[in-house]
């Protein structure tokens, strides 16, 4: 058994990809907790899709693709805010407009340049964790160090700000700076995750571990710690599944994460569908839910 588990680790590419998967899982769970409590899941999706043209342009110019992606993410949030503040268009609509436009531009650019270079659009969309280099590992570790340091150092201010923006502003906390800091954290985390899962699935790593932990514990730092534990478990399990059954790594990690969420959703002591039925009639909760759904559809 142990031998089987150690087998993949003899390959240095597996070591590197495991490290990246774990580190990315950790920072996604932490930063994703902020996204979830602020109801900004869609923003995470918007930024992750928007970094694509930045990746392509950086690649063309021979610049660091992390930097390119980050710049594109920042520009997209600026556009989103511009549309939102200069018109009556709501934030989610603005996000939808900007991120789909950026995404389309990114796909166009990459498709154009991949004829002449050996890059692969699929690697950007779905990640290419088995292809991470030592430099990628280094960059990921640096980003993780920055993200975790900022969260630890600003924890009490960010808790106050994300819970009660007006209250935090009223005592004179620099809320615009805190907001900018959070956006930076989100951008950095997404950029660091691209190699592992790509732009399309990164949302799952951001949101699902945090949401799963939220079903089980009651304070933000507990959500973060449990989210990290869930993410690390899913990263390791996903990588092994992908190694032994020859599955794509990113989707394997996401599927394990989603599986853990389903377990928590059904069996959470506080809020589970099975453990915490909405009413105390004798019927099994899940059957009732189903019946409710069917009846609701008929109406």
């Amino acid at each position: 058994m142990l031998e089987t588990l150690l087998e993949p680790l003899q390959y240095s590419f597996m070591q590197r990809s495991l490290i990246v998967a774990i580190v990315v899982g950790i920072i996604c769970a932490v930063v994703g907790s902020y996204l979830m409590v602020q109801r900004l899941a869609l923003l995470g999706d918007a930024i992750s899709h928007s970094v694509l043209p930045g990746l392509a342009i950086a690649y063309l110019m021979g610049a660091n693709i992390f930097v390119g992606a980050f710049v594109a993410g920042i520009i997209s949030t600026i556009f989103i805010n511009l549309i939102r503040t200069r018109s009556n268009i709501k934030e989610d609509t603005a996000m939808g407009i900007v991120f789909s436009a950026f995404f389309a531009l990114g796909i166009t650019l990459i498709t154009t340049i991949q004829k002449d270079t050996k890059i692969d659009l699929n690697h950007f969309l779905f990640g290419n964790i088995l292809g991470v280099t030592a430099a990628d590992v280094r960059d990921t570790l640096i980003i993780a160090f920055i993200v975790i340091s900022v969260v630890v150092l600003l924890y009490k201010e960010l808790l106050f700000y994300t819970f009660d923006k007006l209250g935090a502003q009223a005592v004179g906390l620099p809320v615009n700076l805190l907001d900018l800091g959070l956006m930076m954290l989100i951008g950095l985390t997404i950029v660091a995750s691209l190699k592992a899962v790509g732009v399309i699935l990164v949302l799952s790593l951001l949101i699902t571990p945090a949401a799963t932990a939220y079903l089980l514990v009651e304070r933000l730092h507990q959500v973060m710690f449990l989210g990290v534990a869930i993410a690390v478990t899913a990263s390791i399990a996903g990588m092994y599944l992908s190694y032994f059954y020859n599955l794509p790594s990113g989707p394997a990690i996401v599927l394990v994460t989603s599986g853990i969420f389903i377990l928590a959703f059904l069996f959470s002591p506080g809020q589970g569908v099975f453990t915490h039925p909405p009413s105390n009639s004798g019927q099994i909760a899940i059957l009732k839910e189903l019946k409710g759904l069917i009846l609701a559809n008929r109406r």
Binding site: V37, K156, E157, D164, A170, V171
Partner: peptide, 28 residues
């Protein structure tokens, strides 16, 4: 200044305890 906003401004499902909220008064 201490300011307590209207009820509707607060997300009551946020994962914080009573103690966490009270200690926000000590952040500044």
């Amino acid at each position: 200044v201490a300011y307590v906003p209207q009820r509707s401004q607060i997300d009551w499902t946020y994962p914080v305890t009573v103690w966490d909220v009270v200690m926000m008064g000590r952040v500044r």
